[in-house]
Amino acid sequence: MDWNLVSDVAESGEAYSEGIGDFDSLVKLHRPRIFRFILASLRDPETAENLTQDCFVKAYKARERFRGDSRLGTWLMQIAANLVRDHQSNSRLKFWRRSLRSHVDLSDACDCVADQQRSPEATASAKEQVRAIWNAAADLSERQRTVFLLRFVEDMDLLEIAAVTGMKEGTVKAHLFRALQAVRAKMEELK
C-alpha cells in the first residue's frame, strides 16, 4: 500500500464520515506527530514511516467507526500505539537487528539536541542527559515507554494517555513514575 492510495481516495470525492472530514488535511495535520511518536518508540525512521503510513490507512479504513468520543489526535495516536505494540511483538526475535538499530540511531538522536546558543560544556552536558534518557527509555517496558513518550514528548495529559493506551489513570501514573525512576537512575550515573 502506498501513500498514493490514501491521497487518491481522498481526492476522489468519496463520502467521509462526519467526524473526519477532509482526510488529506487530517494527514497533513497529524502526520508529523504520529511519525514522531513511532520514531521515538522504534528509533527507526524507515519503520516509523511505514507504520505512520499504516496508521493512516487503518484510520481511513476505520473512519466510519470513529464515534467522536475522543479527539481525533487521540484516536490516531491510539492506532499508532497499537501498531507500535504489534510491531514490537512481531520483531521481538529480531534481536540483532534491534540492537544494531538502537545502537546506531541513539547517537543520531542525541546529536539532534537543539543548539540554543549554549556553551559547548552546556551542550555536551545536555547531550549526555538526552543520551541517558534515551538509554533509560530503551530499557523500559513497551507500556512504560509508550506512556513516557506520550507524556514527555507529546505533552499529553494523563487522561489523554489513558484514552490512548486504554489504561486507567492510576495505572498510567504508576507507569510514568517507574519510567521517571529509570530516567533518574540513568541521570544519577552521569554524576
Binding site: 508529523p32 511519525f35 514522531r36 520514531l39 521515538a40 543520531d108 538522536a109 542525541c110 539532534c112 539536541v113 537543539a114 545536555a126 542527559q129 538526552v130 534518557i133 534515551w134 513518550l149 514527555f152 514528548v153 505533552d155
Partner: peptide, 11 residues
C-alpha cells in the same frame, strides 16, 4: 532537551 531532540530528529 529530550523532547527537543526527538522533535528535531523527527523533523
Amino acid at each position: 532537551n529530550f523532547r527537543g531532540s526527538v522533535r528535531h530528529w523527527s523533523d
